[in-house]
Design a protein around this nucleic acid. Structure first.
Lengths: 353, 353
DNA sequence: CTGTTAGCGCGTTCAC
DNA sequence: GTGAACGCGCTAACAG
């Protein structure tokens, strides 16, 4: 492999000059510049990023830690991350943690060795050691989607408001017995969505009924099982709010199996708006999250913490971005003729409590 | 940041010894090892991957170039790539090319600067410069999914056999007027799937009818438009084979809109078996591709080309892996009672021509 | 079994 | 405007 020395010799200048030309610095005679560029071209020279990084103490490498890229919710976030990074001249390393704290930690340590410039992390749902591991290290990092540490920059969706919107929609349709299939209680996301559910009920002065709430694990089978349980109730719900789309799909499946018509006998609303939500029949009403934006903003925030030229915003206080989610009404909660429909399109915007 | 020198001094040994301990080499006195490890621990020392890479000429970094990670077909491939890489102690950089040769080239050049150890590439559909760019560079690379250069290692699905299976299934159901919605003709994938379509027709001595073939672009709207055209034919087809699931979804949509019942009036078969295929109603019959395996095997092949210890398989001839795809029969092509059904489950295995 | 030392390839003062 | 020389942190002979 040809080095900067080869170029310097061939061009009859010093390595310092070649370096200057390559980095587009001023104060280089135009002819010298041309000559160097010519030699670079003809030798097919490519500078060594490792050596560069070693000298500059910057790798222009970011990492994206995600539970599982093949989970339909994450690819769009990843795309947002990669686009923003690419636009700023960074590459991103993809890491699947499988929601296991152990794997998350191993990745983080290996990435530290690699001297990445920063990390965008969707922490594992339970027992993430990210905050502790980051402490001491100067590694800039931004958390996405899950609220686990007030000390760290975090970008998330407004889960409470989103759930409230979904519920207001169902309540507006005349439903009164509305069930919830929640995520695991240790998950901040799950808790927030359940909180939105409760708030909306409270607004309408409907008592919270524990029998109408079943806990799932964000995966499809748990939605299916949960829905079966709800349908077995002496007085089954007329609507169900699932804490994510996968569970809503499971609920749809359970209803289909039991001959319960959706939306006529049962309205179903999900959360996330993954691509699947539009492919089901009936199409799924759901709360759309700004997934791409979440990834993009995560990187924006991260870049602000990376020194580069003039360490601005270094010791800045931790930022917390809460992105608005919006309800997408589809067939699974369509207004049924036999019901009064005072609020076809949800007017409330869900701003403020 | 503490360096290997700090550790050496603190432990009262030389840097060489520390290096040996860190790299798990033999020939180090147990006590010395313990002492070094202890100091490493107490100083919180992490070795610098950049310096390491510079000295060893290896980064343990791979790249995965993919058209668009948010396209439902690719995340599973990515997962296969990342898992295999991780298991071997490599990290992988994610690059979205958007199917643009320009972006693909820019990434590849930047990655070359970074001295990655290898690349797994799904080349852009049209005019990829990957083969030319790789030439001269010693960069080990494996192509996935698209057959664009016989000189390079390639892993792909058996598109011809897959399409043939799908067609045999439809033919076995008694269909004779079977349409095809193909991908762009410049795409090797599209051409191969069309070839399978023709072969199956030939097997049954059914003449190829150009009117029954419309060209799409692998995206949903083109499947929708294509299906509308086919339904407008004086004598519409009774079945349609779409070259991928997204277009099959479009076809389903068109049928629904026209009041054509699936599968009663029209059988629909797709290709890929993305997650969406199971969420539609009716569920989509499709040819499943071993996506995860494709990614995993791509890395396996790649690692064989990376020197490491003892440059085995260096000058080896280019490998070509063709993975079997299998038909997944779902509702969109269910056997209709009113038809004779001589072959409920496709017995033919599609092996050999 | 352990230490010395010369690279690895580039950025960056500091003189000229 | 340009060059000489040192430092970045680590590995890999080569001695001992």
């Amino acid at each position: 492999m040809t080095t900067i020395y080869d170029v310097a010799r061939q061009a009859g200048v010093s390595v310092a000059t070649v370096s200057r030309v390559l980095n587009g610095e001023a104060h280089v005679a135009p002819e010298t510049r041309q000559k160097v560029l010519h030699v670079v071209q003809q030798l097919g020279y490519r500078r060594n990023g490792l050596a560069r990084g070693l000298a500059t103490r910057a790798t222009r490498l970011l990492a994206f830690l995600v539970p599982d890229i093949s989970n339909p919710y994450f690819p769009e976030v990843a795309r947002g991350v990669e686009d923003a990074a690419n636009a700023a001249g960074y590459h991103v390393i993809l890491c699947n943690t499988d929601d296991r704290a152990r794997k998350e930690q191993e990745y983080l340590e290996a990435l530290l060795d690699r001297r990445i410039d920063g990390a965008v992390i969707i922490p594992v749902a339970e027992g993430s050691r990210v905050p502790k591991l980051l402490k001491g290290t100067g590694l800039p990092a931004v958390l996405l989607d899950r609220d686990i540490d007030p000390e760290l920059d975090t970008v998330m969706a407004d889960n409470v408001a989103g759930a409230r919107q979904a519920m207001r929609h169902l309540l507006g349709l005349g439903h009164r017995r509305i069930a919830a299939i929640t995520g695991p209680t240790r998950s901040s996301t799950a808790r927030e969505r359940l909180e939105g559910y409760r708030q909306a009920l409270a607004e309408h002065e409907i008592p919270f009924d524990p029998d109408l709430v079943v806990e799932g694990d964000f995966r499809r089978p748990s939605g299916y099982q949960g829905m079966l349980r709800l349908l077995d109730l002496p007085q089954p719900p007329t609507a169900v709010f699932a804490a994510n789309d996968m569970m809503a799909l499971g609920a749809l499946h359970a209803a289909e199996e039991r001959g319960v018509r959706v939306p006529e006998d049962l309205a179903v609303v999900g959360f996330d708006d993954i691509a699947l939500a539009e492919a089901t029949r009936p199409k799924l009403t759901t709360v759309a999250q700004p997934k791409y934006e979440m990834g993009r903003l995560g990187v924006e925030l991260l870049l602000q913490r990376i020194p580069e030229g003039g360490r601005r915003g270094q010791g800045r206080r931790p930022q917390r971005l809460v992105l608005e989610s919006r309800l997408v009404v589809r067939q699974s909660s369509l207004i049924v003729r036999s019901q009064l429909a005072p609020e076809p399109v949800p007017a409330a915007n869900g701003k403020g409590v």
